[in-house]
Simulated scan of single mutants.
Amino acid sequence: MIDPFGDARVEGVSIRSLPKVSLHDHLDGGLRPDTIVELADAAGIDLPETDPTRLAAWFGRQSEAGSLEKYLETFAVTTAVMQTREGLTRVAREFVEDLAEDGVIYGEVRWAPEQHLQGGLTLEEAVEAVQEGIEEGEDAADDAGRSIRVGQLLTALRHNGRSADIARLAVDFRDEGVVGFDLAGPEEGFPASGHREAIDIVSGAFLPTTIHAGEGAGLDSIRSALLDGRALRLGHGVRIAEDLDVVAREGEEVRVRFGDLARWVRDREIPLELSPSSNLQTGAIAAWGKQLDDHPFDLLYQLGFAVTVNTDNRLMSRTSLTRELAQLVAAFGYGLDDLETFQLNAAAAAFLPIEEREELIELIGEGF
Rank of each mutant, 00 (worst) to 15 (best):
M1L: 07
I2F: 11
G6Q: 06
A8V: 00
V10A: 10
V10D: 12
E11T: 01
E11C: 08
V13N: 04
I15L: 09
R16G: 03
R16S: 02
P19N: 07
K20C: 05
V21C: 01
S22A: 14
G30H: 07
V37Y: 07
V37S: 09
L39N: 01
A40M: 06
A42F: 03
P52T: 05
T53G: 12
T53W: 13
R54K: 15
A56E: 12
W58M: 04
F59R: 04
G66D: 11
S67K: 09
S67I: 03
L68P: 00
E73P: 14
E73L: 14
E73N: 14
T79G: 02
Q83L: 07
R85K: 11
R90F: 06
R93G: 00
D98H: 09
I105E: 13
V109D: 10
W111R: 05
W111E: 06
W111F: 14
Q115Y: 14
Q115S: 14
G119Y: 08
L121P: 06
T122W: 03
A129I: 01
A129Y: 03
V130C: 04
E132Y: 01
G133C: 02
I134A: 06
I134M: 13
E136V: 08
A140M: 11
D142H: 14
I148S: 02
R149Y: 09
V150E: 12
V150F: 12
G151C: 08
Q152E: 12
L153D: 07
T155R: 02
H159T: 07
N160T: 12
G161D: 02
A164Y: 05
L169H: 01
G177R: 04
V178E: 03
G180D: 02
L183S: 09
G185P: 10
G185W: 13
G189I: 08
A192D: 09
R196I: 11
A198Q: 02
I201Y: 12
V202Y: 08
G204D: 02
F206T: 09
T209Q: 05
T210G: 00
G214A: 07
A217Y: 13
D220V: 12
D220E: 15
R223A: 14
A225W: 06
D228H: 12
G229N: 11
V238W: 05
R239H: 13
I240D: 05
V247E: 14
R249A: 12
V254D: 00
R255A: 15
R257I: 02
F258E: 01
F258K: 02
D260I: 04
L261Y: 11
D267R: 15
R268Q: 15
P271V: 00
I285M: 13
A287K: 14
Q291T: 09
L292V: 02
L292A: 00
P296A: 06
D298R: 03
L303H: 11
G304L: 05
V307A: 12
V307F: 04
T308D: 01
N310R: 06
N313M: 12
L321K: 03
E324A: 10
L325V: 04
L328S: 05
V329L: 10
A331D: 06
A331I: 04
Y334L: 14
D337M: 01
L344W: 07
A349E: 02
F351D: 01
L352A: 07
P353Y: 04
R357Q: 10
E358S: 08
E362L: 13
I364L: 13
I364D: 11
E366Q: 14
